[in-house]
Design a protein around this nucleic acid. Structure first.
Lengths: 205, 205
DNA sequence: TAGATTGTTAATCGATTAACAATC
DNA sequence: TAGATTGTTAATCGATTAACAATC
């Protein structure tokens, strides 16, 4: 049975569309069009329609898309009709900010636990969580069935933390450490490094 | 005089190359090859050579690239042979974490000031900075000649903050608020939204 | 109905890869 | 010299856009 393969780049735009739709809902809007979404996002209307058409037919000719319905469909496609528990590794400034971040609510994510290797931090509270010993990471993650994690440790520890997470069954890692990691086939990896984004802009200044 | 136009996507990879090179330097390496860089980064060797060739000839046949020299050349290309002062707007968890972040050192960036609109925060210290009143933002940014800023406010304030920054002469904005902003032609804009990255991965789980 | 907008096809555009002469 | 690796060209691959029939 041939599953249609969706290009990564298309999947990558769906969360952007969803964010815009949720914003429109917050503005009490009910219907939108590919043209309006495109203008808000700086993406061509044709591309938005093409992207969505990879997954189904969500609109109505002449009227456009029901915001509520389209948002729900994208949530289903992205598997965020459920809430994903996240393990945060590293209880420094970034890890703590992430653990306290209010922006996960209603977007399919929830921080569930936070780890560190510093005895001075283990047992202390960060937001509503108690920092756990990284030695318990693999077991805790496996027992909780956690599939998604964020690495917020220094670069030098990031690869070993990634290995631990993978050993515990994690399948998706968001890495804040400014270093390229290697993970086995089947484990997804994304990066956040503010300096990379800043350097992409200074080229043009 | 026709300036060769470099595709955005190529410029966007240079900071990744630079980060890898700096890592190699930290490992006391002196020479690398497009093949080795490609393996580390999950990018084809041909693409790395092609990207670099847009800007000049930095390697030697048979031996590869001097890490130190190539890193310096990329720094020149990206205009990070200087240090860019950055204004941070929003002194919440994210803004505070960014203001204290040690990862800017040696990468061409330096936080120079932080603003908030909350009277309870204005005047308090975050890292080595005193939180300034956002009403002074436009003037302070203009007088300091700041061209780069980061927005770490709630979504509802992000657009007005962006407008203020632009009014103060800022030309590059990194936005942590999970909302699409609009800025005039000539102002660069990048986004960091961890939820977007997480949602890009849950599709595959 | 007339106007608007979708979903889709075909054409265009741009990015990546393979291959290799040049040369260190 | 022999081996290695660059810089570059041409071929391939993939993504974006334009256009329009279908239809609400």
């Amino acid at each position: 049975m041939a599953e249609k393969i969706i290009p990564d780049i298309v999947v990558g735009r769906l969360p952007i569309y969803l964010r815009a739709l949720q914003r429109m809902l917050a503005e009490n809007r009910h219907v939108t069009s590919s043209q309006e979404m495109g203008e808000r996002l700086g993406i061509s209307a044709a591309q938005i329609r093409k992207d969505l058409s990879q997954f189904g037919e969500f609109g109505k000719q002449g009227t456009g898309y029901s915001i509520d319905y389209l948002a729900e469909q994208i949530r289903l496609i992205l598997h965020i009709d459920q809430v994903w528990d996240i393990a945060v590794v590293g209880a420094g400034d970034i890890g703590s900010a992430v653990a306290r971040y209010q922006g996960f609510a209603n977007r399919g994510m929830r921080v569930a636990m936070i780890f560190d290797n510093d005895p001075a931090k283990i047992g202390s509270d960060v937001g509503s969580f108690t920092v756990q010993d990284i030695n318990n990471l693999e077991t805790a993650v496996r027992e909780a069935g956690i599939k998604v994690a964020m690495i917020a440790t220094p670069s030098q520890n990031a690869q070993e933390v990634a290995d631990l997470l993978v050993a515990g069954g994690v399948k998706a890692i968001l890495n804040y450490a400014p270093i390229s990691l290697s993970v086995p086939e089947g484990v997804r990896l994304q990066y956040i490094d503010p300096v990379i984004h800043l350097q992409r802009m200074t080229y043009y200044l």
